[in-house]
Simulated scan of single mutants.
Amino acid sequence: MTSAELAQLLSEANSADWESLASALKLADGQPPPRVAWLVQHLSVTKRGHWEAIAATLGTPLPPPELNLNGLCLWEVGQAQVLSAEGLAAPVDYSGARLSVAELLRLNARHTVWHAGQIAALCRGPRLA
């Protein structure tokens, strides 16, 4: 995948109108359940970890510490767009695995939508037959 394709994948996982992190979070009405708050925090920490591993490999910028999850999602799309083909192919160590930067970004997108599904399930009220 090219940097533009990976940026698009991250953008869709983070903020597409349907089946994304943003669309799942829109289901939270008022105070989110504690599990949703934990998942939001977990996604923030994990996304930062992905980009810290990439920065250690490529010398790219780290995510600004003041960004919330929404800001982090926007920031990472911009960062993914400017990665070179060589940068995407570079090996990176993450969580005991050796991946290419492109593979880590795809993992990032999968991880995001995995938890978006959990958030959506937790935010939906009980359905009555």
Rank of each mutant, 00 (worst) to 15 (best):
G117S: 11
H115T: 08
S23A: 13
L39I: 15
L107E: 12
G59S: 04
R98A: 07
N68W: 00
L99Y: 10
K26C: 11
L6A: 06
P65M: 01
D29Q: 13
S11F: 02
L88K: 06
L10H: 01
Q118C: 03
E86M: 10
V82H: 14
R127F: 04
G49R: 05
L6T: 01
Q79P: 04
L9F: 05
V113S: 08
Q81C: 09
G125Q: 14
A37I: 09
H50R: 08
Q31A: 14
V45S: 15
H50T: 07
H115I: 08
P33Y: 00
P33A: 14
S11H: 13
K47H: 15
L21H: 05
P34Q: 12
R98K: 13
K26A: 15
A80Q: 02
N14K: 00
L83W: 02
V77C: 09
I119S: 00
G49M: 06
G125I: 01
Y94G: 06
H50K: 04
E12A: 13
S11Y: 04
R127M: 10
N14F: 03
V92W: 02
L9D: 01
W18D: 15
T60V: 13
L25G: 04
A85V: 11
E19G: 07
P61R: 06
A129L: 14
W51T: 05
T2E: 10
L104M: 05
H115V: 08
R48E: 09
A120L: 04
G78I: 08
P34A: 15
S44T: 14
